[in-house]
């Protein structure tokens, strides 16, 4: 780039640096906190010099919550497993239901199709608590309260509209003629969907799935109301760190690092798809 001046490049770098610091600093600080004891964290003024310790991590993974007064059991590893089970299952179900539905909405205009699609989107408008209270009563009656099945079902309120609307856009961007060309060569519409539409919308589906996964992973309120201790995900489980004898910052930090690790790893791995999927639109025909 010959025509960008030195000043322009310098400003660009400075701006990028500011943005990176702004977004990365909390994560960086939490990683630092997770390597300190509560005493060094709370000292004033804060300092960067400390002897790093992995005590917080070992305590959490061993299921102990150590405070200066007492030690009590927590089930963080179980919470982490719950988060993984709930998020993975929710996204899997939402993909299985949402992708075919998105294809139908994109390709076939039938009576009321827009209304149905909009209704599905409107699930995201309602304040969750409004839905949750009546839902709790129903779930208790039909025995779905405090089950993985029930939670995965409720998580569809988050995942399904997201996947449906993002993926629908991708299907709409694929020229229908590509599918026609395949069908006229002697293939059924189902094999056209599998062999042409799905692969072409692949990056979009991956991006939507990943976003849905992150939303599901970060969800707090559904699990707080509907799940008991043994079904709680990390977001709810973290409440246990607020104890009678104070807040265990070091262990909270370690727990946060452990709980953002899977989504962070997933996002880094799928970064290419995410950028491609969310910015490019689908493949040009």
């Amino acid at each position: 780039m010959d025509h960008t001046s030195f000043l322009e490049r310098w400003f660009r770098r400075a701006a990028l640096t500011v943005i990176i610091i702004f977004f990365m600093f909390p994560i960086f600080w939490i990683v630092l906190m997770s390597l300190q004891t509560n005493e060094t964290i709370l000292r004033s003024p804060p300092s960067m010099s400390f002897a790093p310790t992995l005590d917080n991590y070992t305590a959490i993974l061993a299921g102990r919550l150590d405070s200066n007064v007492a030690s009590m059991g927590i089930d963080f590893v179980n919470n982490l497993m719950n988060s993984i089970i709930l998020s993975v299952c929710s996204v899997a179900v939402a993909l299985a239901l949402g992708v075919p539905a998105a294809y139908a909405f994109a390709r076939h205009k039938f009576r009321g199709s827009e209304d149905i699609a909009f209704t599905l989107l409107s699930f995201r408008f309602a304040p969750p608590l409004l839905v949750l209270l009546p839902l709790t009563l129903y779930f208790q009656e039909i025995g779905l309260a405090d089950t993985y099945l029930g939670l995965v079902w409720v998580y569809q309120l988050i995942c399904l509209p997201l996947i449906l609307w993002i993926v629908r856009g991708y299907f709409e961007d694929i020229s229908p003629d590509i599918e026609y060309a395949y069908r006229i060569a002697g293939h059924s519409w189902f094999s056209t969907f599998r062999k042409i539409a799905l692969p072409l919308a692949g990056p979009g589906i991956a991006a939507a799935g990943l976003l849905a996964f992150i939303f599901a992973w970060n969800n707090f309120i559904f699990a707080l109301v509907l799940a008991s201790a043994d079904k709680q995900p990390v977001t709810v489980g973290a409440l246990a760190f607020v104890t009678a004898s104070g807040i265990q910052y070091g262990q909270i930090a370690a727990a946060i690092v452990l709980s953002i690790a899977p989504t962070l790893a997933l996002a880094l791995w799928a970064q290419r798809y995410l950028v491609e999927g969310l910015s490019l639109g689908a493949v040009k025909g």
Binding site: S175, D177, I178, Y180, A181, Y182, I184, A185, I196, L200, V283, K284, G285
Partner: peptide, 11 residues
Amino acid sequence: AMAFEGYSLYP
């Protein structure tokens, strides 16, 4: 058999 105006090749 059909040739499409928009080409419609499989990318």
